[in-house]
């Protein structure tokens, strides 16, 4: 049986207590929420914290509150809870949909929103046991020096595999981070860096305390996920598309890809090319093309990389077509 290494498990009930525990533990300490990302990694010795500090007992990190200016979600809400909350589903169907596409029903009963947003980057040279990684002499993300995906590269190419993160970036969510030295609020995209090892800009002491979603007025978003099976699998491509409608035309748009880079990859050109259009076939094709070009899948996930790149165009197109269809169906004269 694959087992966890020995460690100390702490269950603080306040943020202050959590920070103190983290400060005591130093670099050997790690925060955990649902554990569905950290514990497998610990079993495979990809991460080896000596002190694990659970955030699940801190009341202010839980819950989901609908406000006039949007919605504030506690990061420790489980993906199941988030995706079935009726008010949330109604207002943020793309987020709820992304959450319910994560892994399996069993895992979503444990895994949290915050956990999915901070999900460790993935790579099939890295998400392996210690013994397996030893057989390839390890990789730079853990215990080694080289990135096997691109051996001449100075950086790690592990893949951002969150389903919810691309949606958060696309819809313009904000994250509130709190640490012992204060707090900061940042646009979702700023949490991420395109580096497989340092993929979060969050300081290790900081805790993701709130996810703030913009009020659902005038914009729409969808999330489309490509994977081998209808459950279990991480995205090999995620397409989050957001459109701010101005009447029949597009005031602003964003396309964010998951599973193709070490961060949720915003395709700026894809968004700008849609602006001012009414999401015609031509506009969709241009945007899909714009998304296709920078998408750079590598050989470290399921499926052939060239096919995954080809699929960017197809999935961006179907995502935008769905948005257009939804617009048409909601604007039908009564």
């Amino acid at each position: 049986m694959l087992r966890l290494p020995s460690f100390t498990y702490l269950q603080p009930s306040t943020l202050a207590e959590a920070w103190r525990m983290k400060a005591d533990a130093g670099p050997d300490g790690a925060f955990v929420a649902g554990g569905t990302d950290l514990y497998p990694n610990m079993k495979r010795r990809q991460q080896e914290p000596k002190v694990v500090i659970s955030l699940m007992g801190i009341p202010e990190l839980a819950g989901c509150e609908m406000r006039d200016a949007g919605c504030v979600v506690g990061p420790c809400i489980t993906l199941s809870e988030l995706s079935i909350l009726p008010s949330f589903r109604r207002s943020y169907p793309a987020v709820a949909h992304a959450a319910e596409l994560v892994s399996t029903p069993l895992l979503r009963n444990m895994g949290t929103l915050g956990g999915n947003l901070c999900l460790d980057t993935r790579c099939n040279y890295y998400d392996q046991t210690y013994e397996w990684r030893k057989a390839i002499d390890f990789c730079m993300k853990k215990d080694g020096k080289i990135c096997w995906v691109a051996p001449s590269s100075p950086r790690c190419w592990a893949v951002s595999s969150s389903d919810v993160a691309p949606v958060m970036v696309a819809i313009g969510a904000e994250f509130r981070l709190v640490g012992p030295k204060g707090e900061r609020v940042m646009p979702a995209g700023r949490l991420y860096a395109n580096d497989g090892i340092n993929y979060l800009t969050k300081h290790p002491d900081e805790i993701l305390a709130e996810v703030r979603l913009p009020a659902p007025d005038g914009w729409d978003a969808v999330y489309h996920k490509l994977r081998r099976r209808g459950s279990f699998d991480f995205p090999v491509l995620g397409v989050a598309a957001w459109i701010d409608w101005d009447g029949a035309d597009i005031a602003d748009a964003r396309i964010v890809l998951g599973g193709v880079a070490s961060w949720p990859q915003e395709v700026a050109e894809g968004g700008t090319t849609l602006k001012g259009t009414d999401l015609s076939d031509e506009a969709i094709a241009r945007a899909a093309d714009a998304a296709y070009r920078p998408a750079k899948p590598l050989d470290n996930t399921d499926f052939d990389l060239s096919w995954r790149k080809q699929m960017t165009r197809v999935y961006v197109k179907t995502a935008l077509e769905e948005l257009r269809e939804r617009r048409r169906s909601t604007r039908k004269p009564s």
Binding site: N124, R228, R229, G230, S231, F232, D233, D302
Partner: peptide, 8 residues
């Protein structure tokens, strides 16, 4: 990663 079909 070894893909065994699920219920879906």
């Amino acid at each position: 990663e070894y893909k065994s079909p699920t219920t879906l």
